[in-house]
């Protein structure tokens, strides 16, 4: 039981990192990145390929994955700069699919659908339970560090400028904010955080393959951030632990529902996850920890004509 809890906490820590990434791009800057899992995948591959095949030391591999995340994030921003939020959402969704397809089909580069097994671990797996405990310490401290850095950034002038861009790009531009640069910075740094999460997860589970990086993961992170509170780094952090905790809890809840087949129990679990989010949104539309400086009561998306309110 203890091993299971430790493992769940490590996974939740990885989700917390992803949630911090989403908080920066979506929560603070208003850029909807539905391709989050694509950056997660890129980070995992960058570190796995360099450490397993090129024999790089792991810290170097992880640093490289952050750089690659930063670079690809920047490329994606400059090619989507002029897009409205809802367009960006769908284009990034496509980006994640392209990443998965390239990873599956370019066998010479990525090893194809077989993936890369035996990715070196950060500390020896042979330590047994201590391996997982050490990883828990590493992942948790990483999540907290990234969280503190993000908190710091969020309350800095830069963070306030990002919020200004989120609330109204035109006003922000008129006020002299370098909107394009701010967006590119936020999106690239967010991509780098997701890549870091990917690298860590890859080294932890020692396996990287295209089929791991499905849209399901992006959806889960969005649920975590929404539940915790969009725009509040602490909300995203707590939301991730709650999400993974709830996902695991539904396992035990589904087990006690009498007279259902395994597939019905699995469906029940997912229904519970969906319903929980719907209820949460209904009862606390701003998440469990709402952003402290309340946003203006208008939609986040910038629409050319009119609003829904």
């Amino acid at each position: 039981m203890v091993n299971y809890l430790i493992f769940i906490l490590v996974v939740a820590g990885v989700y917390a990192l992803l949630a911090q990434s989403l908080t920066l791009s979506w929560g603070l800057t208003g850029l909807v990145n539905l391709g989050l899992v694509g950056f997660f995948a890129i980070g995992a591959y960058a570190s796995a390929m360099t450490t397993k095949w090129a024999g790089w030391p792991i810290p170097l591999g992880i640093a490289f994955s952050i750089l690659v995340g930063l670079g690809v994030g920047f490329l994606v921003t400059i090619s989507t700069l002029r897009l409205r939020d809802d367009y960006l959402a769908i284009v990034t969704l496509g980006f994640a699919e392209v990443v998965r397809l390239v990873a599956s089909n370019e066998i010479w580069l990525t090893g194809g659908t077989d993936g890369i097994a035996g990715v070196p671990s950060i500390v020896p797996r042979a330590w047994g339970p201590n391996y997982h405990i050490t990883m828990l310490v590493i992942v948790t401290s990483l999540a907290i560090t990234v969280h503190l850095l993000l908190n710091h950034l969020a309350s800095s002038p830069w963070g306030r400028a990002l919020r200004a861009v989120r609330e109204d790009q035109v006003v922000a531009a008129v006020a002299g904010k370098p909107v394009v640069l701010l967006k590119a910075q936020a999106f690239s740094i967010a991509a780098a955080i997701a890549a870091l999460a990917g690298a860590i997860y890859g080294h932890y589970t020692s396996y990287v393959a295209p089929e791991i990086y499905q849209p399901l993961i992006t959806i889960y992170v969005f649920l975590a951030v929404t539940a915790g509170g969009v725009g509040r780094p602490l909300g995203a952090l707590i939301g991730s632990y709650l999400l993974i905790g709830f996902l695991e809890l539904t396992r035990f809840m589904a087990e006690v529902v009498p007279g259902v087949t395994p597939v019905q129990a699995a469906a029940t679990r997912e229904i519970m996850v969906g319903l929980a989010l719907i209820l949460l949104l209904r009862l606390r539309p701003d998440g469990l920890l709402p952003e402290r400086n309340q946003r203006a009561p208008k939609p986040v998306a910038v629409h050319p004509k009119g609003t829904t309110s």
């Binding site: 979506w26 649920l223 996850v273 949104l281 986040v300 629409h303």
Partner: peptide, 17 residues
Amino acid sequence: KSGALMMAICSLAVGIV
């Protein structure tokens, strides 16, 4: 009142259900 993106996320949850 929470905005278009919250509605979009909610529709994602509706889709799962």
